[in-house]
Design a protein around this nucleic acid. Sequence first.
DNA 1: TCTGGGGTCCTAGGACCC
DNA 2: TCTGGGGTCCTAGGACCC
Length: 420
Amino acid sequence: MYALVDCNSFYASCERLFRPDLEGKAVVVLSNNDGCVVARSAEAKALGIKMAVPFFEVRELYERGELHVFSSNYAFYGDISARVMMTLEEMAPEVEVYSIDEAFLNLRGMVTEPDLNALGHKIKQRIKRWVGVPVGVGIAETKTLAKLANYAAKHFAKTQGVVVLSDPRWRERLLAITDVSEVWGVGRRHAEKLRAENILTAADLADSDAETMRRRYSVTLERTILELRGISCLGFDEQPEPKQQVLCSRTFSTRITTLQPLQEAIREYAVRAAEKLRIEHRLTRSVSIYIRTNPNARFEAKYANGATYTLPSPTNDSRLIMKIALQLLQGIYREGYRYMKAGVVLNDLQPEDNYQADLFTPDCGSPKALSLMQALDRINRRYHRGLTFAGQGRQQHWAMQRNYLSPRYTTSWNDLKKVR
DNA sequence: TCTGGGGTCCTAGGACCC
DNA sequence: TCTGGGGTCCTAGGACCC
């Protein structure tokens, strides 16, 4: 049996943790740049605010005082997330952290707790008491069914936030009343296509012919079908697989129309991507960048382009990655556009410890370079932006907007200013 | 005026090999 | 009229997830 523990309205619940006055109020958290809504409290959902709506569409509610708004504060949510996961790890021997706000537990070997419903409530209560955020718990034979059980736990008040799907009769009933689009692994496109062939509920999908569906859709959907029938097809990974790609991209707060600020942004993203790479203890052999104008603008000239460079030998040196990214930018930059977004992507990653130099190029993974990068990281861990490269920009007028940011309740940065 | 960021997996098709 | 069979690797694009 698997349990899926998922925090309710996670970002909004985090913000409420330190603002008990917001209990029972409509709260939303916005995406980067205060662009669109990415988390909603139950009260905000009740106001009819849909997921991912642009903020300007609900700004009126905010101005009337009916809605409380926060910019996203990922350092804060990451910290609360770690507390939730630690609590879970204390309760279950095998935990797979699936995202910032949810985790699967493998209940195999938890013989001490034969009553699964009681176990679910125990988890829920402990996280509420120890960390302070509400969670829902779904328990079933496969991950996909546990997801579905969790969905039910959140949508039906009678369940009190815990659903165990071990009884086949209950399972059938739930599948029969659940829209197929709610099934984990069925997105918007597949849902449309499925509806067209009269597969409307999760039960319809579970009863469809797996072989045919595999041919018509993909092996992924076939696995989903089997999982809905109680046949486990998805693995359980306690250790996350090493990343295959590292990406850093941002929408600018204002449009960029000249090369210089675009270069600043690309330098900034390249440096941050390289930092992530080093945190993961990986090297890259492929550096890509992209730039684009607003794809939604109807009366503006559009332009989007990307470029990739493959290195002869892998690196995680910020200086080299930054240099390559800038050269790539020179190649694709065109004047006369209002740029909205840029990004740096690192692919073809490999572990740091099997570094193989190239016979025909100078070594860029020298011990000297490595210890320089380590020193850089140590300083920047301690002092936020303590050391930056010339040309990353000091003002960064294009940097993202966060007008509704909450304080650093649980994390801190020693500002360089203070140190001086 | 105004719409995020960071990932994964699968498939089809092309290029290439013997 | 008429031109094989069996592979691998890479890439782009599409779908999905949070």
